[in-house]
Amino acid sequence: MENLRDVFMNELIAYAATEKRIVVLDPDVGEATRTWNFGERYPDRFYEFGIAEQNTFGVASGLASTGCIVFASTFAVFASLRAAEMIRTSICYPKRNVKVIGGYAGISNGKDGATHQSLEDIAIMRSFANLVVLAVSDPVIARKVVALVSEYTGPVYIRMEYEPLPAVHPESLKFQIGKGYVVRKGRDLTIASYGTALHRALAGAATLKAEGIEAEVLDFPTLKPFDKATLLESVARTGALVTLEDHNLIGGLKSIAGECLLEAGMATRYLGLGIADIYTESGKTEELRSLYGIDAAAVAGAARELVKGGK
């Protein structure tokens, strides 16, 4: 199992061999985000800016205005908060061709604690007009996202959790912006997630299967523009929805799904699993996911509650 960051960066390095417009910027997180590897291969297309996220994303805007495809990486918490205004006003407003990589999203950086965990990035980024918001769930998405965002002209935010994970999607996946994917078919309820939560959603579904509950599992690698049709079609069939996310319950997938259901006039049994509007603490990521009720067991528990409540 390769860490998602290595899959992503290796693909970016390979892709940049023919796509010469790609330039990579780094504010002193080159080892963690693997941009160092890019810089080693393409020293003329790599710029280090030190601990200065605001400048990094401002420079990204300027470089993109000259025709470069700019990949600027930092931790999701710094991209979405420290550099938020640069991304909004200098990148999204003039539609600059910048790909913002938010690494160590959610609580995938467990040990560093609340300052380095990112539980607000989706809420913030999806409120920026012109910005496409993506989240990487497995190695297949991590690889395919490179060509996808490079061929798309405009600003994109890519949420990445740095974990070694197995592939879930098939190699043949036609990964498109704005599309959600049914990863597992089921009839009793829908479990929707984004990012690495997909793996816990599937583990929860496996537990439920042993109990005779068939969960449908959806992955939304695009949070914006959101694939309402895939969500609504699934929920219309199953009649119940659990959302799972490594993010504050405010402003993430729970909110997005709620907006979709309400707009569609669909009254559905519905539980959101995420971080309950608190600051998290240090620990091993898996321990923290259990602590905050966003692990596979929590998914199974929420599903049971919904399914039994409805029967």
């Binding site: 710029y47 605001q54 400048n55 994303f57 401002g58 420079v59 990204a60 805007s61 300027g62 470089l63 993109a64 205005s65 000259t66 025709g67 470069c68 205004e85 640069m86 006003t89 200098s90 407003y93 003039p94």
Partner: peptide, 19 residues
């Protein structure tokens, strides 16, 4: 470029210069 939020312009200009 678009501008107006003070303090950002020099970074944008630097990006253009690197371009």
């Amino acid at each position: 470029t678009s501008s107006g939020s003070l303090g950002q312009g020099l970074s944008l200009a630097l990006g253009m210069a690197l371009g």
